[in-house]
Design a protein around this nucleic acid. Structure first.
Lengths: 233, 233
DNA sequence: TAGATTGTTAATCGATTAACAATC
DNA sequence: TAGATTGTTAATCGATTAACAATC
């Protein structure tokens, strides 16, 4: 429908959803793009543009009804689709994800956790028994989940993904350090914690450098800086 | 330094770093922007533009030396700065983060894990004793970490952040569902797993809808690979 | 109604891609 | 040298912001 929605807009949608959910919980009934823009630190114009990719949810002179808008965004995001997911890998990350992410309230349902290690098969995570990965084929055929959360070690990621694709899974959330390439018809969301850490490091360094250079305007000087910095290990 | 590097470029840096590290491990000595572009699914032009925000690291007719470029990017990211971090919150997420993220190899060092619950204080995570949050002030004054990883419950996030700011911490990685706003001089990297899940859901729905609409115009659907990552700065 | 605020078009700004001269 | 490939400028494309008429 409509013209294609840009990636930038899509990336912002969950944030809108979160803020609207907060507003809803705090009992706010209506909000204007201007008020929301202040809370979120974006322009009102951007909010209106973003929302109008999907339709007109507001009312001139009034603004947006928080409950209605939040529900509509939920629909846009597919949170009302009853999507179900299996998770492969019941290590630390799997355990954390299964416990932390409020699956149900976000409209997802985690219906199976799998691992191939005898040590964890049969143990319980958040009330769910960890199942044997050897049985995942029949489980998927029977329950038809749409998504898979991959919290397996790096070495296993490609073979697991391939196997699950052959069973019909088309959407993956990948927590491994390696990227899972997005091939035809397959959707991947890569989550790399260390990337976030590196970005934080970059910003910290940038801030410290600009402080060190004083508030003066700095000329470019990239070539003679080489030896000043020691090499960490 | 120079003209400000755009957020889009910064967001891509960790990805370059990862790919170069992979290449290095596989023994590749040199690579051209063209070859790298194929591996990463971006344009060669973009790679050259991105790198030249920081200097000329290549050589005409040759390409880039993988080891040298990887080291240079590490420097740009601040991975050679010997940054240290404390973590607050030794629950599931804290445990996972401390165990999974290869701190040392990324140039960071986690030097203290804190919690306020008697149940976890004194237990060991990845060889480190969990310390009492009541002692964090003196710990920070003594060891002067630059970063804090916050893996505390939503309700505690703001008060913990405020306290650590008052002790001089300026860079935060926030895993709680709530956003930590980026105030003057404070750097925040928000990690929201449920946002990724929602993005996955959106893409899945979008794909299914375009399939339902026939193969009419779903040609343009696939442009958004890798980690979009919000620039919620 | 009058004021407020949307939806939407137009203007601006920034990021990506293309092209090519420099040069290893 | 000749071929390859960078660094960099110019052209294109897309996203953000501004403006305003429509309208609640």
């Amino acid at each position: 429908m409509d013209k294609k929605v840009s990636g930038s807009v899509i990336n912002r949608l969950p944030r809108y959803y979160r803020h609207l959910t907060d507003l809803l919980e705090s009992g706010t009934e209506r909000i204007s793009s201007k008020e929301l823009s202040k809370r979120m630190g974006v322009t009102a114009s951007q909010i209106r543009q973003d929302l109008n990719c999907f339709g007109g949810f507001g009312q001139q002179g009034y603004g947006y009804n928080v409950e209605y808008l939040q529900k509509e965004i939920a629909k846009i995001l597919g949170l009302d689709q009853g999507y179900t997911a299996v998770m492969v890998g019941a290590g630390n990350m799997g355990r954390t994800f299964a416990t932390n992410t409020k699956f149900e309230s976000r409209g997802f349902k985690l219906i199976g956790i799998f691992d191939n290690s005898d040590k964890v098969i049969g143990t319980t995570i958040n009330g769910m028994k960890v199942l044997d990965y050897a049985d995942i084929k029949s489980f998927i055929e029977k329950n038809k989940p749409q998504m898979a959360i991959l919290t397996v070690p790096k070495a296993a990621i490609h073979s697991v993904a391939e196997e699950l694709i052959s069973y019909g899974i088309t959407a993956f959330m990948n927590f491994s350090y390696t990227e899972l390439p997005e091939t035809e018809g397959i959707i991947v969301e890569n989550v790399h914690l260390s990337d976030s850490l590196m970005r934080l490091s970059y910003k910290l360094l940038e801030k410290n450098e600009s402080k060190a250079n004083g508030s003066k305007d700095n000329k470019e000087n990239n070539e003679d800086e080489g030896d000043g910095i020691e090499n960490g290990d």
